[in-house]
Computed example of a mutant assay.
Amino acid sequence: MTDTQSLHAARRAYIAPINRVVDHMTGVQNFGGGRYACGRFTGKPGNEVHEAWTHMFAEWLPQSGYQPDNKPALELYEEDFVMDPKTGNFSCWLCVPVKTL
């Protein structure tokens, strides 16, 4: 998948609903537009997804020709999100806001 295809796919994704939300934590957040570098993650929650984020910021970003933009990084879950009950694996898009150097 090309970078452009990844960005288009991420635009079609959405943030997964949370089944249990504490009332005082519920809110609406607007995310402005801009350029995001998105990579597909498949693995387990916890250390594996943390390592993928670390790779995006510490290894990919410095050699990419981009720098981080001052916007939130996003984890996007597609409409058909599932976690494999046997392995605990799931997939999502890790999206880093970027701007040119």
Rank of each mutant, 00 (worst) to 15 (best):
Y66H: 11
H8C: 02
N47A: 15
V22T: 13
A73K: 00
Y66N: 02
S64T: 05
V96H: 00
S6F: 13
T4Y: 07
M1V: 12
V22D: 09
S64H: 07
P85F: 02
N70Q: 08
Q63V: 13
N30M: 01
Q67R: 15
R40I: 07
N30V: 06
H8E: 13
L101V: 10
T87Q: 04
F81H: 06
G88Y: 14
R12W: 03
W93Q: 02
L74K: 08
N89K: 12
K99V: 13
P62I: 06
G46P: 05
D23A: 13
G43V: 03
E79C: 03
D69L: 11
C92I: 02
Q5C: 02
T54F: 05
P85D: 11
S6G: 04
D80P: 00
A10V: 05
P72L: 15
R11C: 06
G34K: 04
A52M: 09
I15R: 09
V98A: 01
D84P: 02
K99Q: 13
G34P: 03
H24R: 07
H24Q: 08
T100G: 00
F57T: 09
C95P: 01
G43W: 03
L76Y: 04
G27Q: 12
L61M: 14
R11H: 11
K71N: 02
A10Y: 02
